[in-house]
Amino acid sequence: MLADASGVMPEALKFEGDKTFFTAALDRADLIVHGKHSHEGQPNSPLRRRIVLTRKISGVADDPSSPKTTLWNPTGAPFETACAHAGVGAGTIAIIGGPSVFDMFMDRYDTFWLSQAPNVRLPDGEPVFSGVPQRTPQQVLASHGLNPGPSQLLDANHSVTVTPWLRTTP
């Protein structure tokens, strides 16, 4: 789960090591893609080029409240059009989701970083992917051709890890 039953990421799911890892990854990205509820709200957030998914427009548009943000309706324009509008033709793209956003890119990921906090329980929470909890996140990732790499320990006191799930190409 990535949020509680009300759709909010609770304090119990926030760990300094995970935050440090996440922030560093976003700082390295050329573009960040997310839904309207996934804005990371960090000091560097306004400096990052981003695409925000929305149904409030017909295709692609500038966000009048944020000069580095492109609004994108996936039903009205291809992702490549949104990237071009954002001024990004190549580089690293960080998808910070929600489940519907993650699901859209499942067959396009080179790497999906799966963080886990095994001691946190969020009954009726928002799952990271569609199909969870019927399947585990690992089963979902594997079903899309991704394979786990070596895990990194982010918080020893809480057993929080992050595992890269990598797409192997023949």
Results as ranks from 00 to 15, higher is better:
residue 62 D to E: 07
residue 169 T to Y: 05
residue 16 E to N: 06
residue 19 K to F: 06
residue 77 A to K: 02
residue 57 I to W: 06
residue 155 D to T: 09
residue 122 L to F: 05
residue 42 Q to W: 09
residue 81 T to K: 08
residue 91 G to P: 01
residue 34 H to A: 05
residue 158 H to Y: 05
residue 148 P to D: 10
residue 156 A to W: 00
residue 170 P to W: 00
residue 61 A to I: 12
residue 65 S to N: 13
residue 76 G to E: 07
residue 149 G to R: 01
residue 7 G to D: 13
residue 159 S to I: 01
residue 41 G to T: 14
residue 144 H to Y: 03
residue 50 R to Q: 14
residue 126 E to G: 14
residue 83 C to H: 00
residue 10 P to R: 06
residue 71 L to R: 04
residue 47 L to Q: 10
residue 30 D to F: 00
residue 97 G to L: 03
residue 150 P to E: 14
residue 168 T to S: 02
residue 134 Q to S: 13
residue 15 F to E: 14
residue 26 L to V: 05
residue 106 M to G: 10
residue 131 G to T: 05
residue 59 G to D: 13
residue 155 D to W: 01
residue 6 S to C: 05
residue 48 R to V: 11
residue 37 H to C: 11
residue 31 L to W: 10
residue 49 R to L: 12
residue 28 R to P: 10
residue 152 Q to W: 02
residue 21 F to V: 06
residue 111 T to I: 12
residue 162 V to P: 04
residue 124 D to Q: 15
residue 45 S to M: 05
residue 149 G to K: 02
residue 49 R to P: 12
residue 82 A to V: 07
residue 57 I to Q: 10
residue 85 H to D: 10
residue 67 P to H: 14
residue 52 V to A: 02
residue 61 A to E: 15
residue 66 S to K: 11
residue 37 H to I: 11
residue 156 A to L: 00
residue 32 I to L: 14
residue 148 P to Q: 06
residue 58 S to M: 07
residue 127 P to L: 02
residue 128 V to L: 11
residue 43 P to A: 15
residue 149 G to F: 00
residue 57 I to T: 11
residue 16 E to G: 08
residue 134 Q to Y: 02
residue 35 G to A: 14
residue 101 V to Q: 01
residue 27 D to N: 15
residue 163 T to K: 07
residue 24 A to T: 14
residue 93 I to P: 13
residue 63 D to H: 08
residue 148 P to G: 04
residue 98 G to E: 00
residue 47 L to I: 02
residue 55 R to S: 15
residue 125 G to N: 11
residue 146 L to R: 06
residue 70 T to L: 06
residue 42 Q to A: 13
residue 9 M to R: 10
residue 65 S to A: 12
residue 47 L to D: 09
residue 118 P to G: 13
residue 34 H to D: 10
residue 53 L to P: 14
residue 110 D to P: 04
residue 159 S to Q: 10
residue 14 K to V: 13
